[in-house]
Design a binder for these strands. Structure first.
Length: 271
DNA sequence: AACTTGATCAACCGCCTGAGA
DNA sequence: GTCTCAGGCGGTTGATCAAGT
């Protein structure tokens, strides 16, 4: 049916923001707070799309933003979070105070991808690049990713599904979404089906009860046990899912990474 | 010094979801 | 139940800068 444009494009500026525009935006938000982005540009005297204002504020002007280099610890945290969440940059950014999704996304694409490749790890699957698949490594190194690491079939590409209700059945793993055929993981990776049942991420994530993680032999990597599945289920993301003191979450303490632990939902139970 | 190539990152675009009419 | 709107997200683009030749 088509949609009206978010703003009158004929009368909006595009491209880099000027200092004056920044000052106007900052002054307006300081005075009136965030929100109502659509009407903000006019109210603030900016010839910008509301979306553009929001993006500028969120990604660059917000006072709580942390600028500067990522630490090694940040790197590792991003990698772990990406392994669990896939390209859910906003969720990942939520674990890194002062960082924006855009910044993390860029950092991933420019630094971490290469870092993982240099370690022989596929940045999309977080699994070792098999030595025999030189083409896979080459494709990955060139920015492409492959969909078929050994024993890791990818689902056929599908249009981005509707965002699932946050139901977390006991065996659902918080694993990164499997790559699509073309290797471009998208937000569509957020499926409601259990993902990567055979994926041993070996993330050393702090996981809490009910599991005390047994050291699993490497051979177990592709043959998950129910214990492993239970363990993975224990990773709690409820904080990010907006359930900060929700009934579904019984966790009391946060892990160093900020995770809490989730009681598996009963069948049909939703957060 | 001039040019080319690659890396970085701010910003845009299209799509989706949830709320409200 | 349907439609519209606003906000939000992830993917992609393009301008800019640095390094290399």
């Amino acid at each position: 049916m088509g949609r009206s444009p978010c703003c009158e494009k004929a009368h909006t500026n595009k491209g880099a923001w000027t200092k004056e525009e920044d000052q106007r935006l900052i002054a307006y938000i300081k005075a009136h707070g965030e929100g109502c982005w659509r009407s903000l540009p006019k109210a603030a005297g900016l010839l910008r799309c509301g979306k553009s204002c929001r993006l500028r504020w969120m990604n660059y002007l917000r006072p709580d933003l942390k600028r500067g280099n990522f630490t090694d610890g940040d790197d590792e945290l991003i990698i772990k979070l990406h392994a669990m969440l896939g390209n859910k940059w906003s969720l990942i950014a939520g674990q890194l105070p002062g960082r924006t999704d855009n910044e993390i996304k860029n950092y991933w694409n420019t630094h971490i991808k290469r870092k993982l490749l240099s370690r022989g790890i596929d940045p999309q699957t977080h699994r070792p690049l098999s030595s025999g698949t030189g083409s896979a490594a080459a494709a990955a190194a060139s920015g492409l990713t492959t969909s078929s690491t050994a024993g890791f079939p990818s689902p056929s590409p599908a249009p981005r599904p509707a965002r699932p209700a946050i139901a977390i059945p006991p065996n659902v793993m918080f694993a990164r979404p499997a790559p699509s055929e073309d290797g471009h993981s998208s937000s569509g990776g957020s499926t409601d089906a259990p993902r990567c049942p055979d994926l041993n991420l070996d993330l050393d994530l702090s996981v809490g009860p009910p599991c005390s993680p047994p050291k699993t032999p490497p051979a177990a990597a592709s043959t998950p046990t129910s214990q492993q599945q239970q363990r993975t289920t224990a990773i709690c993301l409820c904080y990010h899912l907006g359930v900060r003191s929700g009934e579904a979450c019984s966790c009391k303490t946060a892990s160093p990474a900020g995770f809490r632990f989730l009681r598996p939902l009963e069948e049909g139970q939703y957060i």
